[in-house]
């Protein structure tokens, strides 16, 4: 075991490499299809035999998707909803998490129990009452309606609490002796010390809301108010297979491209976040 064996000589290396490369190809293949088909002329997407690489490239599909749905407005809504939910949930979740991690207040056990009970309720089972409530408030089709009900989430609270309890308690005691208020300790001392957790939760909530389909589908009535993910789903659902595939792929590309670029930048942090969230479970 002491002398390093060159990788091609180790038993099973070639097989392991082939297997993992095959898995990578399978993972990336549909994305390649989306990208290529978005630029493929319509007559070639329905030709037989099908070819992955078209003979010419076109931008017609993008024009086609802009004709059918208000792509600009929907992309804007997607950004607003993702940023809005991420922003508010980071602040509200971290405040609750801070209280749970640092403040020895009466009823903390009760709060903990309440949160755990809340976490076991899947949001899909609340669609109807939430729809009725949002209708009552006049929030259907508004950004307020899309963001506010999601401005806090129990999973996020527990995740941030995990990061807070790793920070030494002495930090709070020292700040208190210096006369800092609780708010100042939270905002100036603990939040900067929990950036790894905040980033992880932020990325999670941003991606989750960007990709969410059912929530914006139910809580909006007109195409202008929808997010792009929901817009594409409804475009596809109402057209009953009558829209050319190139057009849906062009829409899909517009919808995934910003996330893929973001992922390229933060992928290390994101993957580590997923891994630690799993370990802490």
């Amino acid at each position: 075991m002491n002398k390093p064996i060159p990788f091609w000589r180790r038993p099973g290396t070639i097989g392991a490499n082939l297997l993992v490369i095959a898995a990578s190809l399978l993972a990336i293949f549909p994305l390649v299809v989306v990208i290529v088909t978005a630029f493929t002329p319509q007559n070639e997407t329905i030709a037989y035999p099908p070819e992955l690489i078209p003979s010419t490239f076109t931008l017609d599909n993008f024009a086609g998707v802009f004709e059918r749905i208000p792509v600009g407005a929907q992309l804007w809504n997607t950004i607003m909803m993702s940023v809005g939910v991420t922003f508010f949930s980071l602040i509200l979740n971290s405040m609750v998490a801070y209280a749970l991690a640092f403040i020895p207040f009466k009823g903390r056990g009760l709060l903990f129990g309440l949160l755990i009970a809340t976490m076991m309720i899947p949001f899909q089972s609340l669609l109807i009452p939430l729809y009725k409530m949002l209708t009552e408030f006049g929030w259907i089709g508004t950004m307020t309606g899309l963001i506010v009900p999601r401005a806090a989430d129990v999973a996020g609270i527990f995740l941030l609490r995990q990061f807070f309890i790793m920070i030494p308690k002495e930090l709070r005691a020292a700040a208190m002796i210096d006369g800092a208020s609780e708010w100042k300790i939270y905002w100036r001392v603990m939040m900067p010390n929990a950036t790894a957790g905040l980033l992880t939760l932020g990325i999670f909530n941003f991606v989750g809301n960007w990709n969410d389909m059912l929530w914006p589908m139910v809580m909006t009535n007109s195409a202008e108010d929808r997010t792009l993910t929901a817009g594409l789903a409804i475009l596809n659902g109402t057209a009953q297979g009558l829209i050319p595939y190139g057009v849906t792929m062009a829409g899909s590309l517009i919808s995934v491209l910003p996330l893929v670029i973001m992922f390229a930048i933060v992928q290390k942090r994101f993957i580590e976040g997923v891994a630690t969230a799993g370990l802490k479970g």
Partner: peptide, 25 residues
Amino acid sequence: TIFMPFIISMAVAALAWSFIINPNT
């Protein structure tokens, strides 16, 4: 790369796979 499908929305994944497995094209 293998993690990548997780950040793509299920909506887009479903649209892409529908196209890939379409019996005619």
